[in-house]
Design a protein around this nucleic acid. Structure first.
Lengths: 243, 243
DNA sequence: GAATCTATATCGTGC
DNA sequence: GCACGATGTAGATTC
């Protein structure tokens, strides 16, 4: 079937023979959607067993396998891109999807297949903004939002204890370490900053300051921050949303 | 259409009128799958714009919205469960999915709808094992895997600075803090343990030990661990996989 | 390939 | 509802 430039096919209540030839012809080439009752077994980093039930199965041309039930954003089982997908012409028909690192395998036993569809899909353009990196950019363009006299030096500054979002100097020449969070900062953000802070304090002669930049932080995060001698600067997303 | 106990419906190349009545009747009741060219705009914690392109749209009865392209395990855009989904009978037909906290909205402009399917789905049983909690259970049942004389006291021990996986006493009566990781431990695991360690050392008179239990840890994690005076115990997943 | 961090993370739990 | 940690996290980036 063809509409505009998109070719797609639909099989309703297909026989096993139809399913097998349909799938073997189309996997890795088209976006395949199967609605069927199935059992699913997963074994790898963890293990899972799913009893027979109707589910939605998606096979992407890049090797991704996604199995959904009727609830949640997260799939019941999955395999990421690069997975080796095989259709086993057994009774019942079986889809085996495995990858090497980590070694993981999903087996899908297809019981009743209600429909299968397949389509050639070319991806469109996608632009996203408002991520952490955008905030770091805003700081570099508006260093005074940290404080008067702040001079950004390096972003993604590498240390053995992790990458520091931004390092710079204050007007007194102190080393300044900045960790940015795009949403309310939690304990882990403070720990992360403290890890960098300790490392820089040990390896640099200069005085060091650690600053957490976020729209807000939790009560416990604030307590810990103060106890550790670190600083907080509120990032008002409204104020700098013009970029 | 009915096969066994599963009722499902398929519309091929539906008209706008058909799409509208089909969707309004079925959202929040059935698992709906749409394959269509569409534009997608998202605005909330971040923002995104996706140009017109064929995509797979899933509307779950719990309010979940998932939009997939032909690559990746992760959807292009989404809304989690609890989202308010509306079908707007405009030209073009539009799906608006919004939630309050955080305030986020997705607008999907449907251009050409190739097919829509819908099905009543009751979820099956699902059992998973091999998660962190299973390792903690194993330790509690085999305390000697920590060391001779170790006595587990409390799991999920609450502190202002986070929940400690397991606390106990060693044979000398020292307080022992245990952080468990199911895969190779990284810097953040060491920071996490250290946060708990500092807190307990400050609030308890007793001597305190912090132990990281994991199958392995990265080089830098090991360095930091040693520097902070914390300990590591290897958890051999093979050895205790019998539970 | 290993290590680290971000994510519109999502999800579960405890308060 | 908030805070916090786990996730079979996935995905991007750097080394």
């Amino acid at each position: 079937m063809r509409i505009s430039n998109t070719v797609y096919s639909v099989l309703l209540n297909p026989s096993n023979t139809e399913i097998y030839s349909f799938l073997t012809e189309r996997i890795y080439r088209e976006l395949v959607v199967i609605f069927a009752t199935c059992k699913v077994n997963y074994k790898g980093r963890a293990e899972s067993v799913a009893s027979e039930s109707p589910r939605l199965i998606i096979l992407k041309p890049d090797g991704t396998v996604i199995i959904h039930e009727s609830v949640k954003r997260e799939p019941l089982n999955w395999q990421p891109p690069g997975t080796k997908i095989e259709i086993m012409n057994d009774y019942p028909l079986k889809i085996v999807a495995q990858r090497k690192r980590p070694k993981e395998v999903i087996e899908i036993d297809l019981k009743e297949v209600f429909y299968i569809t397949s389509a050639e899909v070319k991806d469109g353009d996608f632009v996203i903004k408002g991520r952490e990196i955008d905030i770091v950019n805003t700081i570099i363009q508006n260093p005074s939002m940290i404080e008067e006299g702040f001079v950004p030096l390096t972003r993604e500054y590498n240390t053995p204890y992790g990458k520091i979002d931004l390092v710079g100097l204050d007007k007194k020449g102190n080393f300044v370490i900045i960790e940015v969070k795009r949403s309310k900062a939690q304990l882990s953000a403070v720990s992360q900053l403290y890890r960098y802070y300790l490392h820089i304090r040990e390896t640099k002669e200069d005085k060091v300051r650690g600053i957490l930049v976020a729209p807000d932080l939790t009560t416990h995060a604030r307590e810990l921050l103060q106890k550790l001698g670190l600083e907080f600067i509120r990032y008002d997303i409204q104020k700098y949303s013009s970029y």
